[in-house]
Design a protein around this nucleic acid. Sequence first.
DNA 1: AAGCCGGGGGC
DNA 2: GCCCCAGGCTT
Length: 321
Amino acid sequence: MENGALSPDRIARIRAGLRQWFAENARDLPWRRTRDPYAILVSEVMLQQTQVDRVLPYYERFLQCFPTVAALAAAPTAEVIRLWSGLGYNRRAVNLQRAAKAVVDEHGGEFPADPAILRTLPGIGAYTAGAVAAFAFERDVAFLDTNMRRVVNRVVFGADPAPEAKVLEAAQALVPPGEGWAWNQALIEFGALQCTARRPACVVCPLQSECAAFPVVQTVLAANAKAIRPSSSAPFEQTSRYFRGRIVEALRGLPAHDESGIDLSQLGPQVREGFSAADLPWLRGLVDGLQRDGLAVIAEESPPYEAGEDATLSRTRVRLP
DNA sequence: AAGCCGGGGGC
DNA sequence: GCCCCAGGCTT
């Protein structure tokens, strides 16, 4: 079974098993009640590396504030970033608005249905392009997120990772013509609820007799759990990734509609315990990175007088875009 | 191919 | 404490 021989009969059995399972186990999620490509895109971007339960309140709030792609495109970027507070991966907020602007400016305000064109929008990769095509336009496309990749890999190829291209090829062969929406939803749901990474529920699995991984998956998972990991680097609380989040959160706290920003010397203590003037170059470096990502703006570069480097840095002002 | 990018929840 | 999670982008 290592090459995942997908005979027509086997495809039919896998389809039937998963269809039935989805009919009985599908959650009622808000983005499954719409075909609005804008709403679908919002949900998919929020769901990147983020669990369903945490996305739910953000999704509702975001669509309430920005109900249409035109509304999002026209909004102040600072407001978009503020609404994202707590979701993480803040660049997603910036890219989501950039994508909205591209739809308005380059596609006449209408979302393209072709995954290849969707793929050109900022923040939309292979997965999200396929997801919008399938979930908004009901196209029979195949695409892989971590859930779908795991499910197809296990069922068709077994417990060990197969090449991405092979898994995608198998996923494509499995999509039932005319059922692109339901099939892909089912694959994701199955991976999230049944065929999970740590504890797949093989004992009660409807695909047990079809699954290439079933005979060995428990053994492989146990071996992986014991495997020694590289581990132990700097504590997360002193990584730049952590401080970037702190900086953006501090900028969110500045009064809206005030573009004067905040001094680096005032920002520093809000971000790092024991912050001193010696840390100004370090802080400036992080802010530069955030500006490159569209998450911050340096509002005032040069002071009105000649001064030392520290004075220049301390008078540099920062705000949300 | 590898590193970077936030944050919360499960175990 | 460690791992996982509806990924995408840069180098």
